[in-house]
Amino acid sequence: MLAPIEVRHLDHWFGAGEARKQAIFDVSLSIEPGSLTILMGPSGSGKTTLLTLMGCLREVQGGSVQLLGEELRGASAACQVALRRRLGFIFQAHNLHESLTARQNVLMGLEVHGRGDRGRQDAAAEHILQLLGLGHRVDYLPENLSGGQKQRVAIARALVSNPEVVFADEPTAALDREAGLQVVRMLKALGRERGTTTVMVTHDNRILELADRIITLEDGRVVTDSAEAHQPAELLPRSASG
């Protein structure tokens, strides 16, 4: 089966001119379908940058990223829009719309696919909120929810339309131990049932045991990769390109 994410010799820079600074150095990865991959590394090591590059939220500058069979480098706006609808993104901040209730925020994840049966969409939104333990909060505005509850609404929004790939950037930071584990178990179950591929950034040691693969970044480079654990990353042959 084709890898849902293929990264080849990916480089990325921030800034321009004097201030130009490389944040990602020659990263190559192939992510297995249906797997749960965890990205680790110290703050500033490039985890968010890599995740947003793979998730079609940032323009690819050097190297290549193939997502669900589409090349992201130089992808057209229409292609990006179509791809993003097949993904679920859970951000570090919950990024909920303050004027929309929990249900309406989740509905945004459904309405992006076009006009549907209103009743069914409402029910689907409510159902997933229930699964995440928010059945009693569906009509609350974000300002009346706790940090953990908001994060769970954001997770519901990302998962409600059954995405093929889920990207999550420290999704459990705002959750307590039990809730955090529950979310990751849910993502893992999704992978088993529907073949959903998940890439997650986390510092949370409690979660590591659930991962199929753990990749560690440092200063924009992959330093360890459990898929290649028998071989220290530093000794891997380096490509000349990039």
Binding site: V81, R84, R86, F91, N95, H97, M108, V112
Partner: peptide, 16 residues
């Protein structure tokens, strides 16, 4: 003031 929310919608696949 809503740039963050709009960016989120854009990330979800909402077109211009």
């Amino acid at each position: 003031d809503h740039l963050r929310e709009y960016a989120t919608f854009k990330a979800m696949g909402y077109p211009h």
